[in-house]
Every structure is written in C-alpha cells, then in structure tokens.
C-alpha cells in the first residue's frame, strides 16, 4: 500500500470508529476509550525511538506531562482551543526530545535509558516547585461548558484523541517504510557499522527523539481537560512509562502493528480490570504481563506469528527447487 493510501485508510478508520461510537449511549465507553487511544499514541511514539532506533526511553511520563502542563499554562493565560494546545504541547515536548537526542551523542544502551529517567525526574521537580501551575498541590481545570461541533465535551475529547491515534499510527507506518525508517533500523542493528556506511546517525537520532517526544507531548496536551484536576504525581505517573514500554514489547517492536495491538489489548484489559477488580491490581497485571512477554515471547505477539511465515516461505522455496 502506498503511503498516501494508508493515510486515507487511517483517516477513514478514524471516521468510521467515530461514527460507530455514536451508537454507544454509555458515556463511560468514551472515558475508557480515550485512555486506550491515548496509549496507542504513547506506544507508537515510544516505539519510534525504542523499537525502530533501538534507544530505550524510560521518561515517557516526562514528555507526556510536558504536554499536559503546557496546556495548563495556556489555559490559565488565554484558553485556546484544544488543537492549538496539542500543537504547542507537541512543539515543547519535541524540543525536550531534541535535547534528549543530544544525550545520545555520549550515551548508549543502559546509560541512555537511565539518562531519560533522570530527565523526567528533573522536569517533575521543576513542575512541582512551580507555583503558577499549582505546584505539588495540583491545579483544577474547568472545562468549557460545551464543545465545538459536538454535544458533550467527552465526545469531543474522544474524537481529538482518536484523530491523534490515527495520525500516530500513520506516521509510524510511513517512517517504517521509508528511507528514514531504514536509517533508524541501521542504527538499531549496529550504530558503528551504520555510521561507517555513511548513514547520518546523529541527524537520524535527533529526528527520532524529537518525533517521539513530540507525539508523547501531543498525547498529554488534552489531559488536563480530561481529568480536570492535575497534580505532578498523576501527570508524571510511572505507569505511563511502564505502559508505553510494555505495549510495544507485547505486540512486537519492529513494526507499526505491534504497538497498536499491544495498546488495544493491554489498554482494554486494564480498563476492564479497573472497573471489575481494582486499580492497583490492574497495575500489577501490566507488570506481570510485561515480564512474562520479555521472558517468554521476546518478539511479541507478532513474533509468535512470524516463525510460521518463515516456515511457509521455506516450504514455497522447497517447492520451487
């Protein structure tokens, strides 16, 4: 499928899902759906850097919260519509992502991963000490009474996040099947060999960290309107980072379908478990599933399917011979 066709298909799926959602009368569906869609964006964003380029980011919650807090600041100053908030959140988080890309100059592997964790905590400390956005007490955000285009506000938020999810999946696929994606894969497989072969590794790494960070910030930008009360402990919650890593690893990290499957599966299970069992038990579930998958199925659900495909190719080759 050509890139333009895939973008059209993604846009069509967004419209179809949104149209279908109008048959759902229960508002809880939209609250739960919003969270799952948000995880699709986070998982695809994490995977651009973690899965394609091979640099692990433990600081997802930091980027996510930068998007959320930039919205808080804008909301207090002027109160622009959500699409503007998303663009600003994306730009700010992308700038921090660019700075994080600078870290890759000196740090690789474990050190880079710990560096990203450090970055998230430093940002969190600054936000906690910044009184304008509520500091450690948190801040209340009052939603506008009605949403543009649509009836209730949660439908509008759902649509926004749905569009973001469609966009991030399309971006991930476009990258994967383009020169950029091949460059990323070359860095992931062997950075020195890639550099020696003339791949502009630094430039590509900077693009990867910036894109990944920007998408995470965009996912976080509508958050204040969704939760209506935001404090650093929830904005910078470690569970965002754990989920953003667990979802691609469960689905499979080397292509765009993996994070999508992982996010839908794990996100839905968690939403169901939160309602039926308890919210801390569902976090335990994420941890257990993550450990189980890295130990037992290192290439994710996609990887379980792949050996069979290889077998089929081998069979076909035997027939030809």
């Amino acid at each position: 499928m050509k890139h333009s066709h895939f973008w059209l298909a993604a846009a069509a799926s967004v419209i179809i899902v949104f149209a279908a959602s109008h048959f759902v009368s229960n508002d809880y569906f939209f609250f739960a759906g919003y969270v799952v869609l948000q995880y699709i964006v986070l998982a695809e964003a994490w995977n651009i850097l973690g899965g394609y380029t091979g640099y692990i980011n433990f600081g997802t919650s930091g980027f996510f919260a930068i998007g959320a807090y930039s919205s808080v600041v804008l909301h207090k100053l002027w109160g622009p519509p959500i699409p503007v908030l998303i663009v600003v959140g994306g730009v700010l988080a992308g700038a921090v992502g660019l700075a994080m890309g600078g870290l890759t100059l000196r740090l690789r592997g474990v050190f880079f991963a710990i560096g990203t964790l450090a970055l998230a905590i430093v940002v969190q400390t600054f936000i906690t000490n910044w009184d304008f956005v509520g500091g450690s007490r948190g801040v209340y955000i009052i939603r506008p009474p009605s949403a543009p285009l649509l009836g209730t506000y949660i439908h509008y938020l759902f649509l926004v996040m749905l569009a973001l999810a469609g966009m991030s999946v399309a971006i991930a696929r476009t990258i994967e099947r383009s020169t950029l994606g091949y460059g990323f894969a070359a860095i992931r497989d062997d950075e020195q060999a890639a550099e020696a072969a003339g791949v502009p590794t630094l430039k590509l790494k900077l693009i990867s960290t910036t894109l990944s960070g920007a998408l995470m910030g965009m996912a976080g930008a509508p958050l204040p309107y969704y939760v209506t009360y935001l404090d650093p402990a929830s904005g910078f919650n470690l569970s965002y980072a754990v989920n953003a890593i667990a979802m691609p690893l469960i689905g499979g990290t080397t292509n765009w379908i993996g994070p999508l499957i992982g996010a839908i599966l794990l996100g839905t299970i968690q939403q169901a478990a939160t309602v039926t069992i308890s919210s801390s038990l569902n976090l335990l579930l994420v941890g257990v599933v993550l450990v189980f998958f890295v130990v037992v199925a290192p290439h994710g659900l996609i990887g379980l399917y792949r050996p069979r495909r290889k077998e089929r190719i081998a069979q076909a080759e035997r027939k030809v011979a």
Partner: peptide, 20 residues
C-alpha cells in the same frame, strides 16, 4: 533492551505488590 524492560517490570511488580 529486554533485560532492562525485565527489571523495570520487576520494579513495578514489587512496588504494586507491596501496595496491595
């Protein structure tokens, strides 16, 4: 990558188990 994710998962499991 996977080893780190493994320990990240263990960290999370230990913490949540203690909370429970």
């Amino acid at each position: 990558l996977r080893g780190l994710a493994f320990f990240f998962g263990i960290l999370f499991i230990t913490e949540v188990a203690l909370i429970l």
